[in-house]
């Protein structure tokens, strides 16, 4: 208009570009050096770290555990989150806002604090085990620490709130009149879910699954706390290998592998979302 708006772009772009480029360049470069122990690195560029990652069963197993727990957490997020999102999206009373507020609050509390709550709930004489032993579902106390179930539960605490908010915006784009029409023509409630809501939300749900899967792949805090030093995912391993084994190069290599896989999935989900937006199927 009357202002040269592009001038405003220069300072943030300079800062942003410098930080992105410098940090990524330095760490990616570091991943090509050999660890000599105690934080010292060799001065020759090599591919050894990547070869070690791709041939060592230890690292491949960590990659597999990361993918597995992330996929399970993404699926569970969908299963637990979809009905809630549907409920809020279709609710007409002021309760909808209160229910939304509950979700927002849970996403705004840091995961470390939530893990503290989980520790108390899942302790041997905590609420969960008292209840489960009481009704006879379990015969011995169940622990969420140091096993993959725990990691999945932790990841879900990280993603469920976000997932519900995302699904909520997807379901809002499906006119509820379509459901009424199906019901008027004699479809049962289940049939409406199965033949109307499910197919219409499928593209959005796919994108949501990819995004949540990606968040889980990179999630450090919940996986580290609930893995309890026995379950390792890529982010947990990066922190351990850098801070305990002081192998900066190997840490950088794992980080590079994580970064590349996450970006590939991201590009996929962005591409998917863009096609959906073009088709007016989501408004995220």
């Amino acid at each position: 208009m009357w202002v040269r708006w592009w001038i405003l772009l220069i300072p943030p772009l300079l800062v942003g570009f410098t930080l992105v480029a410098a940090s990524q360049f330095v760490f990616l470069r570091a991943s090509f050096f050999e660890d000599l122990g105690l934080g010292r690195v060799g001065d020759e560029l090599i591919l050894g770290n990547y070869i070690q990652f791709l041939t060592d069963g230890f690292y491949l197993k960590i990659l597999w555990v990361t993918v597995k727990t992330s996929a399970l957490a993404a699926l569970a997020t969908l299963i637990l989150g979809f009905p809630v999102a549907y409920l809020i999206a279709r609710m007409r009373s002021s309760w909808a806002m209160i229910l939304l507020a509950g979700i927002v609050i849970s996403t705004f509390i840091t995961i470390v604090i939530k893990v503290y709550g989980l520790i108390v709930i899942f302790s041997a004489d905590g609420l969960f085990n008292q209840f489960m032993l009481g009704i006879g579902l379990f015969d011995k106390p169940f622990s969420v620490f140091g096993n993959e179930t725990g990691v999945v539960i932790g990841l879900m605490h990280f993603t469920l709130g976000f997932g519900v908010l995302l699904l909520y915006s997807i379901i809002q784009t499906i006119p509820s009149s379509l459901e009424s029409a199906a019901q008027i023509h004699g479809a049962s409630r289940w049939r409406v879910y199965y033949r109307v809501i499910f197919p219409l939300s499928l593209p959005g749900v796919t994108a949501m699954l990819l995004m949540v899967f990606n968040m889980c792949m990179g999630a450090f805090t919940s996986a580290a706390l609930l893995g309890g030093g026995r379950v390792f995912t890529l982010p947990v391993m990066i922190q351990r290998i850098v801070m305990m084994d002081i192998k900066y190069s190997m840490g950088a290599t794992i980080a590079a592998v994580l970064l590349v896989s996450v970006i590939v999935i991201n590009i996929l989900s962005i591409y998917l979302l863009r096609r959906l937006r073009a088709a007016h199927l989501v408004m995220v």
């Binding site: 330095v26 990179g218 999630a219 450090f220 990066i238 850098v242 994580l258 970064l259």
Partner: peptide, 29 residues
């Protein structure tokens, strides 16, 4: 300005990078 998509991608890059990778990248930097 030309290349808006690229500029926008640079601003959004920190969201794409897992936080743990940002951590180790800044430490190395």
């Amino acid at each position: 300005v030309p290349g808006k998509a690229l500029i926008s991608a640079i601003f959004r890059a920190p969201l794409q990078i897992p936080a743990i990778v940002t951590g180790i990248a800044f430490l190395q930097l």
